[in-house]
Nucleic acid binder design. Structure first.
Lengths: 357, 357
DNA sequence: GTGAAAGCGCTAACAG
DNA sequence: CTGTTAGCGCTTTCAC
């Protein structure tokens, strides 16, 4: 047959072996690049491989070697730019080392997170990159610990006593945001966040608060935290502003500690007819492509996705290769993009709020 | 030992077998739910499983059955909400049927798309959900055909003679957009798109054009298409508007056929100081969360991600289970969200363009 | 240099 | 009802 028609069974190493007139073991050696094979035979193997279109089955190969070239990645979600980019980066990095990345979304659920992890353990993945839903003390990290899995924790973590961690330097970035807002003259600022991400929120909040208070000791910083869901935050925020209004006071700037918070804040501003930066200023942690094309462009903290991904993979592979030593906590610096949504208080034409619905 | 400390080798089916005093085959049967096992033995197996914390190795299991419970998904990118949601949906659907989804990003490259596909073939995945970079005639689809892989094509495809396809009903949605814009009084409309996505662009463009022309025979519809990259589109769009300006003419509305085009359009409007909808109206194919919180909110066509995902998986699994018959092309209806970015021409205060940079 | 044999962890006949 | 046997596709001693 000239061209094998829609074949059902792919050629196995034995097919190659018999076509090349050698044993399967020899084929395996040739393909593994062992040089002690007679050149003539090696050539026959290569010819047979070409002829049959043979490719090794990586899973069967891994099976025998009892070491699977698979890296598992668990993200809280796939829908945001941040985690989308992260998965994309991790995929490329794994590939470069001959590994396949299997990504899964925990959908912001710790229960699901653990289930996925168990499934990845069943798959005998070589290592895990885990971006926990909550923080480093969740059940997933516990499971990894208990089962001796090798892994790295990223994003919503600061440090851990069992795993290496890599995340953005939230505190430094928040300090920079504080300097910028204070510099613009803001003296009453609202910070919004999600309480369940304890470590990160604390770092971001404290980094901000410490710096702001240091610059202006009597600055007023309000905090609105929802526990774990975004919807309640909407209500909390609305209540917060309504209450303030009844006392005739309101912050001149909002700093959101996470992307969805930025969206909720914008949405609330819309509802009240407030415009940035005239009526209120806004900075959000996490950048997104759209933030630079809207009017006004939204100021944001850009997380160093590539750096986080590449450091995470580096340390993960070092651990996979058996490197010992205590876990290390890495922080990668962020960039702060001060865009049009930030202005000086009291300088806008709309002070007091607009009336457009 | 009370609790096995950080174990290196997971228990195998043989460990369970010997602990339970039965053979590995029996363990396998019990775990597969075969009912012809003596209850007493079954119980001993369950006990041993619990004691050892045993879980079957799905890859080893698949190996033996020569059928892998893995579905491959290939998306052009992971960074956008649309594909992020898509992967998330597909993951859940695969999981429901006891399969694992392995997702990969072709990064808008047909070459990479084919490489990934080959790798998935090496993995002997049971089926593929492919969202091609370009359209159904790319090298990836050819590879799948040539190798007798079973798969479904989604998103940037209309129909294929070898594979089932599922996509959004772009033409109908575009017709609806046309009706809306014409109804608002627009008589000069610009459509922007990406040429390489031939099938989809044609459907969206023609669906729009045909309806608009039918309603207003002498309506003017300009088209700006970049071949495959987004950056050139920026230049093309800028040139288009500059040229029009030199002749004192300009469309009153823009319909972008894809998400990045909407961003490019917004960015260009910013550059020129044009505001929506006063200076120009905008509708984009593909919705995003931010579009409803910006000022103005951006009108968009919402693709039925869940429906596409679930239909794709349905038909894919039917094919995996051996269902025959000719390939079917499915179109799922979209929703059109007419938001504030669309107004009537000539009614805005800024006509002629603003001056804010 | 090379191939036979063993076996990764599992399941599907097929006897008993 | 249960265990033995025979692999899935591959790699790795280890004799020859």
């Amino acid at each position: 047959m000239a061209h094998r028609e829609t074949q059902q069974r792919r050629p196995s190493i034995h097919d190659v072996a018999s076509r090349a007139g050698v044993s399967a073991a020899t084929v395996s050696k040739v393909l593994a690049g062992v040089t002690t094979v007679k050149p003539e035979n090696a050539q026959r193997v290569f010819d047979a491989v070409d002829l049959l279109g043979y490719r090794v089955d990586p899973l069967a190969s891994d099976m025998r070697r009892a070491k699977r070239r698979i890296i598992g990645a668990i993200m809280p979600e796939f829908e945001s730019e941040f985690f989308g980019q992260m998965v994309s980066e991790l995929e490329g990095l794994a590939e470069q080392r001959g590994f396949t990345l299997v990504a899964a979304s925990s959908r912001e659920s710790e229960a699901r997170e653990k289930e996925i992890l168990a499934r990845m353990h069943d798959w005998r993945v070589a290592g895990i990159v885990l971006a926990p839903v909550r923080n480093e003390h969740g059940p997933a990290a516990g499971f990894m610990k208990a089962n001796g899995m090798t892994g790295v924790l990223i994003d919503r973590v600061l440090a851990d006593d069992a795993f290496d961690t890599v995340s953005a330097d939230s505190a430094a970035a928040s300090a920079e945001v504080a300097r910028a807002l204070v510099g613009k003259g803001h003296r009453h600022i609202l910070v919004v966040g999600l309480g369940q991400q304890a470590a990160t929120v604390r770092a971001r909040l404290e980094g901000f608060r410490a710096t702001a208070l240091q610059l202006v000791p009597d600055i007023r910083i309000d905090v609105v935290l929802a526990e774990s869901e975004v919807e309640p935050l909407r209500t909390l925020l609305s209540d917060y502003f309504s209450e303030g209004a009844s006392r005739g006071e309101r912050p001149t700037a909002v700093y959101s500690l996470f992307l969805k918070g930025t969206l909720v804040a914008l949405s609330e501003f819309r509802r009240r007819g407030w415009h940035c930066p005239d009526d209120i200023s806004l900075v959000g942690f996490d950048d997104a492509e759209w933030m630079q094309v809207t009017w006004p462009a939204i100021a944001a903290v850009v997380q160093p996705v590539r750096e986080i991904a590449s450091n995470a993979m580096d340390v993960l592979f070092r651990r996979i290769e058996g490197e010992g030593g205590p876990p290390r906590a890495r922080l990668e610096p962020c960039k702060v993009l001060m865009r049009e949504s930030v202005g000086s208080p009291g300088s806008g034409p709309h002070l007091g709020g607009g009336s457009r619905q």
